[in-house]
Amino acid sequence: MTFQRIVQGASFTIAANALGVVAALAEPIQITDVAGREVTVEGPVKKVILGEGRLLYAVAALEAENPFARVVGWRDDLIKNDPQTYAFYRERFPEADELPTFGGIKDGTFDAEQAISLDPDVIIMNLEAQVATEEAGLDDKLAAVGIPVVYVDFRDAPMQNTDPSLDILGKLFDAEERADELAAFRSEVITTIADRLKEANPERPLVFVERAAGYSEECCMSFGNENFGMLVDMAGGRNMASDILPGTFGTVNPEQVVASNPAQVVVTGANWETTAPGGGWVGLGPDADIEEARGKLAALMERPAYVGVAAASEQNVHGVWHQFYNSPYHFIALQQMAKWFHPDLFADIDPEATFKELHERFLPVPYAPGYFVSLKSDG
């Protein structure tokens, strides 16, 4: 055999092996998303558009080394509605400021042509956007150019859809083991609360949750039997709005709050200076000014909906970071509410320590307190 033929044969073998490796690496990822759709995504995923910016909460837990490494564009909701968290990530990953941003599909400001021009391997959407996406024909338009859409959900039915959503993201980002670890951490917290409540069987206080209190003049947005409404029940309370609101979100009349006379009130709050400047909202989030938040919480209780209500009179009033409602971290809020509703039963539970542990184990940014406040400074 001549030297030339040996070299040619070796070259062919190397090329064939390389092609085999590429083929193996490019194996399609089969996904069943939370909408029940069977979706094929070409892997490995290298370019992703986040149709909801707050999906960063989950992505960062799976890709802590650099959660923006595969993101080529994202919706601007996190930048607008959670600027404190974004500041922490921008400091660590300044390249985030250079990412193209999108508006929302439901409000008609999502630029499909811009999305297509970025040539993503997949667009990850919140489940809530599915109807608007399909009505606008966006899913068909994207499918026609080979861009799959995958739906996840941490908002509409978080107790049902968080684990499947983490599993989906784990597959897409090649981080299945890490997704399983986060799901197990979440499950451990939830199970501990459930087991202790089952054993003690304490009296359950009536709780009213006001969603985004002070964001507008409207009172009172709340949660039905999902999201924070379900968290209330899981934390050992009785969600006042469960029998009033048929879905996840809705509005309760102030007169109904007064008539129901809840024993505990929880409002959700965040830094909304960009979207509701100067509002009465409680500015919770990383590194929040808790004394300022407490003052604004007290002011909210002076509105007609809370006049004479037991919770306000006895200062059993609390504020919790609004963004827990659209995040895989909601089990931290569950832990805190259990402690608020049953302080003796959960005296040994420390939600701040739990959230700090989550940051240390899973996230690339440091923990900074500021997610909870109560009218009682020791609450």
Rank of each mutant, 00 (worst) to 15 (best):
V232C: 11
K339L: 10
A288Y: 07
V145Q: 10
F68M: 10
F228W: 14
A293L: 07
T191L: 08
G279S: 15
I105S: 06
A368G: 06
G108S: 03
G36N: 05
R75M: 12
L297M: 09
I332N: 06
E360K: 12
A35P: 07
F223V: 06
P369W: 14
G247K: 09
E135N: 12
T13C: 11
A132R: 02
L375F: 06
Y151N: 09
M159P: 04
W340Y: 13
S11T: 11
S222W: 06
Q84F: 07
G319E: 01
R294S: 14
V257D: 02
R294V: 13
M240H: 07
K356H: 00
A144L: 05
D163I: 13
K141H: 06
N66Y: 00
K106A: 05
S327T: 10
G379H: 10
A299V: 00
K47I: 00
N126P: 09
A15R: 04
A183D: 01
E217K: 14
D33G: 03
A298V: 10
Y57S: 10
N17Y: 11
E98Y: 10
L245H: 00
V365K: 04
A175F: 09
V150N: 07
Y371A: 00
E65A: 14
A288T: 10
A87G: 03
F346R: 10
M159S: 06
P351C: 14
T32W: 06
F228Q: 10
A23M: 13
T13H: 01
E65N: 15
L206Q: 07
G280F: 00
F185E: 13
D348H: 12
F324E: 04
R178G: 04
I193G: 08
V189A: 04
P328H: 02
Q335E: 15
L358H: 12
E360V: 08
G370M: 03
S313E: 15
D180V: 00
P366E: 15
N316T: 09
V265G: 06
A26Y: 07
I29T: 13
A311V: 09
A143S: 15
Q256R: 08
A305W: 01
S165K: 02
G53S: 12
E128K: 00
A183N: 14
Y57L: 05
L231I: 15
N201Q: 09
N261Q: 14
D82F: 06
F362L: 05
Q4I: 14
D156K: 08
E360N: 13
G295Y: 11
D76N: 15
A24K: 11
G247W: 01
I6L: 14
M240D: 04
Q4C: 10
F355K: 11
E352M: 01
C219V: 07
R303K: 05
I190E: 13
T85A: 12
A241L: 01
L245K: 11
P158V: 11
R75S: 08
R75E: 14
M221K: 07
S11Q: 03
P100I: 08
E135T: 07
Q256S: 09
I116Y: 05
A61F: 01
V71N: 00
I147T: 08
V131W: 09
I332C: 04
P120H: 14
E42D: 12
V317Y: 03
G247A: 14
S313R: 13
N271M: 07
C220V: 00
A24G: 02
V320K: 05
D180I: 00
I290P: 03
A235L: 00
A235V: 03
T2P: 13
S117P: 05
G279C: 11
P100H: 00
H318K: 04
I29E: 08
R70P: 02
P364T: 06
I147F: 09
A293T: 04
